[in-house]
Design a protein around this nucleic acid. Structure first.
Length: 466
RNA sequence: UCCCCUGUAGCUCAGCUGGUAGAGCAAAUGGCUGUUAACCAUUGGGUCGCAAGUUCGAGUCUUGCCGGGGGAGCCA
């Protein structure tokens, strides 16, 4: 007898004989039969198992069949007389693998708050919402890989441990084998890193971009997709200390090609997600964020508006709206500004380019500029309705002298970034890329409001359980 | 780091201008029933986050601490 996943068995016709395994979501006992709703994580839907009280279930079984118990059932698929499902499994045998005492099992057959479920993160994947989040997370990751793989991009496994002390991308976690109670010191009283594992300060990566640029200059099309770490003191619904990031990088590609890539990336990945995770996405649309599917369809169908930062500022000034934060050339766009542009002014995704150099990273390509106080770089932010910035990227500075000068200007250590400068010294090439916070995108596509609810075990400032 | 809200039964919450605790769900027991948010009845279940203060009296007012949530900044 075959063991089937519920996802597959629900597509079988009546008459199939099989075994299934899973966890009890809820039970309803009647005089002659018991109805057991079983879920095995393969899909959102439960399978209704019908057990004859007299022939299949012992009193002990009947008692043990509670929410949370694991069971193995053998039986025959039949058409269901009940209205809520087309097929059900008529059990010939039921084995309770592991009980879940109802007086101590935290999950009940009722709605729980996300806050409560966050405290039992090891059990929350057994709920509808977190089961769906796990499947959508998997599908989204799979679609992202499929997008790049089908376009000849190489997945580069950039390092987790790095010697680069960031580049303004937030605070780092230091990696060390030194004993915090007895840190070795040099004669001048400073920490003697010669005694540390790498014989120099080392950190968890805050971005794979700099490293992946190296492979872009050998393989042309590359991307990273892996964990990233930021020690920000940001205790918000949008920040994690450990999160996943996607960063494609293309050689022989300017900012326009970069924008084309970002636009087709979002459209293709979203299309694949909606086609593959149909049932789960319908659940999010129904229960988590009404209007979600329409919002995502808008991103797929509408061409992205492309506008420079300077023009975007002009649009905001022309809007006549009173924003909480002033609109000023030189300041970054606030959420309310981004919302106005995507939701009111254009009603579509918007790509804003050519930001002031002062608010962007050192490696972005400098534009020719008329005056020193209006210097811009070839940055691009992709803004989407309902969220704001979802992608940030740029064409990179590929001219050695200009990059070196900018690094000096910002006081970056030339020795530390020598290898990065080398990429401009030997066979330099126009190249571009962008970064996407994987969990931020997951929040967007599921409508989940807290980033801690789209990653299995969230790590946040002041919070490390499990 | 700053601002705001919040902490009462296993869960979700009510509890007014101070007078020593309630509901729904869950659980246990019984009943009924091809049920599906099952239904009906009964029962058990609380150091009201912690500590101090005001008061004859504090779940309620004050202060501090701890936890949770939301927003800002920073960022992805």
């Amino acid at each position: 007898m075959d063991t089937l996943r519920i996802r597959h068995i629900l597509q079988q016709t009546a008459g199939t004989t099989c075994a299934i395994r899973g966890w009890v979501r809820t039970c309803r006992h009647t005089k002659n039969v018991s109805f057991v709703e079983l879920n095995d994580g393969s899909c959102l839907s439960n399978l209704q198992v019908v057990c004859d009280e007299n022939t299949v279930l012992t009193d002990e079984d009947r008692h043990a069949l509670q929410t949370g118990a694991s069971v193995e059932v053998h039986g025959t698929l039949t058409e269901s007389p009940g209205g809520k499902q087309t097929v059900e499994l008529l059990a010939t045998s039921v084995v309770v693998t592991g009980g879940a005492p109802a007086d101590s099992y935290p999950l009940q057959k009722k709605r729980h708050s996300f806050e409560f479920l966050r405290d039992i993160a090891h059990l929350r994947s057994r709920t509808n919402t977190f089961g769906a989040v796990a499947r959508v997370r998997n599908t989204l990751a799979s679609e992202i890989h499929a997008f790049f793989q089908s376009r000849d991009f190489l997945w580069i496994h950039t390092p987790i441990i790095t010697s680069l002390d960031g580049e303004g991308a937030g605070n780092l976690f230091q990696v060390t084998t030194m004993d915090p109670a007895a840190v070795p010191q040099s004669e001048d009283g400073t920490v003697n890193y010669r005694e540390d594992f790498f014989e120099r300060p080392s950190f968890l990566t805050v971005t794979g971009q700099l490293h992946v640029e190296s492979y872009a200059t050998s393989h042309e099309r590359v991307y990273t997709f892996g964990p990233t770490f930021r020690a920000e003191n940001s205790n918000t619904s949008r920040h994690l200390a450990e999160f996943w990031m996607v960063e494609p990088e293309l050689a022989f590609c300017d900012i326009d090609g970069n924008m084309d890539l970002a636009e087709s990336f979002l459209k293709t990945v979203l299309t694949g997600l909606l086609d593959t995770a149909t049932e789960d996405m319908a659940f999010f649309d129904l229960r988590i964020r009404p209007g979600l599917l329409d919002m995502l369809s808008g991103v797929i169908e509408k061409p992205f508006v492309r506008i420079t930062y300077t023009d975007a500022i002009a649009e905001l000034e022309r809007s006549g709206k009173s924003f909480e934060y002033p609109v000023r050339w030189g300041s970054d766009l606030q959420s309310e500004h981004e919302r106005y542009l995507t939701e009111e002014r254009f009603g579509s995704p918007v790509i804003v380019t050519d930001y002031p150099a002062g608010i962007k990273a050192f490696y972005m390509k400098q534009n020719e500029h008329a005056s020193d106080d209006r210097r811009t770089v070839r940055a691009m932010d992709v803004l989407v309705p309902g969220l704001g910035e979802i992608i940030g990227g740029s064409e990179r500075e590929d001219r050695y002298d200009l990059l070196a000068a900018r690094m000096d200007e910002l006081g970056l250590d030339r020795d530390m970034y020598g290898w990065y400068l080398d990429l401009r010294k030997f066979g330099t090439v126009p190249h571009s890329g962008f970064g996407l916070g994987f969990e931020r995108m997951l929040m967007y596509v599921t409508g989940m409001q807290n980033i801690r609810d789209v990653i299995p075990f969230p790590r946040t400032v002041g919070g490390l359980r499990y």
